[in-house]
């Protein structure tokens, strides 16, 4: 199937999600369940996408684990998104390098 069709559908859906509440809804959401659900969605979704996929994103599992550990430690120290992302990436690169030499 044409990849541009996929892209078009994605863009359309994403835009509607952003646009409809902004234009249609003027009051506040009162339903506590809906509010709570929407509050948890980003965290659940990001973690479901990250784990366990991240461990398979590198040729060496050890390197991926090291990258994740570094990312978590820095994130808990309150470092910014970029710092964490770059540090994780550099860790994976360096550990893979070491693994590559041994292999």
């Amino acid at each position: 199937m044409n990849i541009y069709l996929y892209i078009l559908v994605m863009a359309g859906v994403t835009y509607l999600i952003r646009m409809l509440p902004l234009t249609l809804i003027r009051g506040k959401i009162r339903n506590r369940f809906v509010k709570s659900f929407l509050f948890y969605v980003p965290y659940a979704c990001l973690m479901a996408m990250t784990f366990p996929a991240v461990f398979h994103a590198s040729d060496h599992v050890i390197a991926a684990v090291a990258g994740v550990v570094v990312a978590i430690l820095l994130a808990l120290k309150g470092k910014g998104l970029m710092t964490v992302a770059v540090a994780a990436s550099v860790t994976v690169f360096l550990v893979s390098l070491v693994c590559g030499i041994q292999a």
């Binding site: 990001l46 991926a64 994740v68 990312a71 990436s89 994976v92």
Partner: peptide, 29 residues
Amino acid sequence: RSVSMAMNVMLYGMFIAIVFPVARKSRAV
């Protein structure tokens, strides 16, 4: 390949950076 594989992890790193600080503060999260 080694460089692009390592950069693959960046996006996951960003996701971790978004979630973990909040998860530390909120047991529910």
